[in-house]
């Protein structure tokens, strides 16, 4: 079936608008789209979106992570093998994280990472034919926000919830951050790490995030206010 931007897209549908634009300029087709011979076909169910000038993708529901280059993820170190750490990222195979890809690490000065540690890392290599590779430094050799996450609490959620809360227009973190202090790291692989001052506050952040999955912006604001009120002890 032929569809256009903003429509509900299902696998097997095609979009002619993309092909028309592609004749004049370069287009970028993102997740859920696939070029076959003369047409661009949809491969995932969701909504066909466009960002000017010519980037197209399908917003779909997904729980299983498929590694993709440049994404920040939260992984768990499962094995130390020689000069690499094997990190479980939730994909089909573990990702490799070299011990040299930490800030200030040298052959002599190894980073302190143990099996079971949670790391916030960036996907450097991710292709369907190769083992994914992670780094904990940026291109300047600085760690930035990447590295081992100490303390805190990790939980899993669907991939589109991560995209939703990281969206700059999402009011969730914006309204929670004024209520009480906490740290949060969201991995594109559907894992969220939270650290707050008390267990009560940690659970409150976790519930707020999980509760936001099927709510719209207004409902999210109301929910955040409710949780804040309960936490502050105004309502029991």
């Amino acid at each position: 079936m032929k569809i256009s931007i903003g429509d509900v897209a299902l696998p097997g549908d095609y979009c002619e608008e993309i092909c028309e634009v592609a004749e004049k300029s370069k287009v970028i087709i993102g997740p859920g789209l696939r070029k076959e011979a003369d047409r661009v076909y949809i491969t995932k169910p969701g909504v066909l979106k466009k960002r000017s000038p010519c980037t197209y993708w399908v917003d779909s529901y997904q729980k299983r992570y498929v590694p993709s280059r440049g994404e920040n993820i939260i992984g768990v170190v499962v094995q130390k093998a020689g000069d690499i750490f094997r990190v479980d990222v939730g994909g089909s195979i573990t990702a490799a994280l070299s011990y040299l890809s930490f800030e200030g690490a040298t052959k002599k000065n190894r980073p302190e990472v143990q099996v079971g540690d949670v790391v916030y890392a960036k996907m450097l290599v991710a292709s369907k034919d190769m083992e994914p590779e992670l780094v904990c430094v940026d291109s300047h050799g600085k760690k930035g926000r990447l590295g081992v996450l100490t303390d805190g609490f990790v939980f899993k959620c669907s991939l589109n919830l991560i995209r939703k809360i990281l969206n700059p227009s999402c009011p969730l973190l914006e309204s929670l951050k004024n209520e009480w202090p906490f740290e949060v790291a969201a991995g594109m692989n559907g894992r969220i790490w939270i650290k707050a001052n008390s267990m009560r506050e940690t659970i409150a952040v976790g519930n707020a995030i999980l509760g936001a999955e099927y709510l719209n912006d207004e409902e999210i604001k109301t929910m955040c206010n409710n949780i804040a009120a309960i936490l502050a002890g105004h309502v029991s």
Partner: peptide
């Protein structure tokens, strides 16, 4: 399969 978000050729 649609719910899992697996890439599909068609339904």
């Amino acid at each position: 399969l649609l719910n899992s978000g697996m890439a599909m050729r068609h339904m």
